[in-house]
């Protein structure tokens, strides 16, 4: 079955690029441009992987990770970050995030990290 991925990111350009790249890689992709919309999609469906920004409108990325790790512990989480966010990334890992990708993402690194995160969850 095609793995289903949710991307939550408020920068539309980054969001569309990730969506484009992951669809090309053969994944089923849903997107949300703020934390509230993202949380709503997580509650409605099940995802193998959630890729989320940390600084999001309405509901933060950390709150989303906390919810996922409590309610959907089998869902992998990759955090989208920018430089100088080390302390927030550390918080994300403490909450159970599996990996992180720096924006703007390196296309090869994205594919590698997504596949690795999905592989981790399968084992």
């Amino acid at each position: 079955m095609t793995p289903k991925i949710l991307i939550i990111e408020d920068n539309t350009m980054v969001l569309k690029s990730l969506e484009f790249k992951l669809i090309r890689e053969g994944f089923e992709v849903l997107t949300a441009s703020d934390g509230r919309q993202g949380m709503s999609l997580i509650r409605e469906g099940s995802f193998e992987l959630v890729i989320t920004d940390l600084m999001l409108p309405f509901i933060t990325g950390l709150e989303i990770i906390e919810y996922i790790k409590t309610e959907h512990p089998d869902t992998a989480v990759i955090v989208l970050s920018t430089s100088n966010q080390e302390h927030i990334i550390a918080d994300a890992f403490n909450l159970g995030a599996d990996d992180f990708i720096t924006k703007p993402f390196n296309p090869n690194e994205l594919t590698l990290r997504v596949k690795r995160s999905l592989g981790i969850r399968k084992t």
Binding site: N11, M13, V14, S17, M55, T82, K103, P104
Partner: peptide, 13 residues
């Protein structure tokens, strides 16, 4: 600062 944070990746891309 929050707006600058949001648009930085757009310029980076």
């Amino acid at each position: 600062r929050s707006i600058a944070h949001k648009i930085k990746p757009s310029f980076a891309m």
